[in-house]
Computed example of a mutant assay.
Amino acid sequence: MSRRVVCLRHGQTLWNVEQRFQGHSDIPLDATGVAQATRAASLLAALRPSMIVSSDLQRAFDTASALGRVTGLSVSVDKDLRERGGGQWEGLTRDEIFAGWPREFAAWEAPGGEQVTDVADRVSSSIRRWAAELEPDGLLVIASHGAAIRLGIARLMNLPQELWPALGGLGNCSWSVLEEARKGWRLLEHNAGTLPEPVRSDDSPETTEK
Rank of each mutant, 00 (worst) to 15 (best):
R59T: 09
L73C: 10
W15H: 05
W164R: 11
P196M: 06
N191W: 03
E162N: 12
F61K: 14
L167D: 08
G171V: 00
P111M: 09
V141T: 11
G138V: 04
V70C: 08
L188R: 13
I127S: 02
A37C: 13
G87Y: 06
A192H: 10
R48D: 13
G23I: 09
T93R: 04
L178C: 11
K79A: 15
N158R: 15
S124D: 06
R129N: 13
R122F: 09
H190V: 09
G87K: 07
P28R: 08
G184F: 09
L134I: 10
Q58T: 14
T71Q: 08
L139W: 00
P165K: 12
T207A: 10
L92G: 04
V6Y: 07
S54A: 15
P160G: 10
S174K: 02
H24S: 15
P198R: 12
S204P: 00
S54F: 10
L43Q: 13
A192W: 03
G152E: 09
T63H: 08
S174N: 05
A148R: 02
D118G: 13
V119E: 00
L195R: 14
L14G: 07
A147K: 08
N158F: 02
L29H: 04
D118W: 00
E189S: 08
G11E: 09
R200W: 14
S65H: 10
V141N: 02
G152C: 06
W108S: 08
I97M: 12
T38V: 15
P160N: 14
D137G: 02
L47G: 00
D30W: 09
E209S: 12
A35C: 02
A41D: 13
L134G: 08
S65Q: 14
R69W: 10
G169A: 14
W130Y: 15
W175T: 06
H10F: 09
E114G: 01
A35F: 00
W130P: 03
S126N: 05
R84G: 10
A99L: 06
P160H: 12
Q22F: 04
H24G: 01
A37D: 07
L167A: 11
S42D: 12
R200D: 01
F21N: 00
A37K: 10
K183G: 03
D203P: 00
A192E: 13
H190C: 04
E83V: 07
W185L: 07
G68M: 13
Q161M: 15
A35R: 15
V6F: 09
D203C: 05
A40Q: 07
D80W: 06
D30Y: 06
Q88R: 14
R69Y: 04
G152I: 07
E206T: 12
A120K: 06
E114R: 08
L159V: 02
C173Q: 03
G113E: 01
V177C: 12
S174P: 07
L170M: 12
L163M: 14
Q115M: 04
G85R: 13
W108P: 07
R39M: 08
Q115W: 06
D121T: 13
L170Q: 13
P160S: 12
A31T: 15
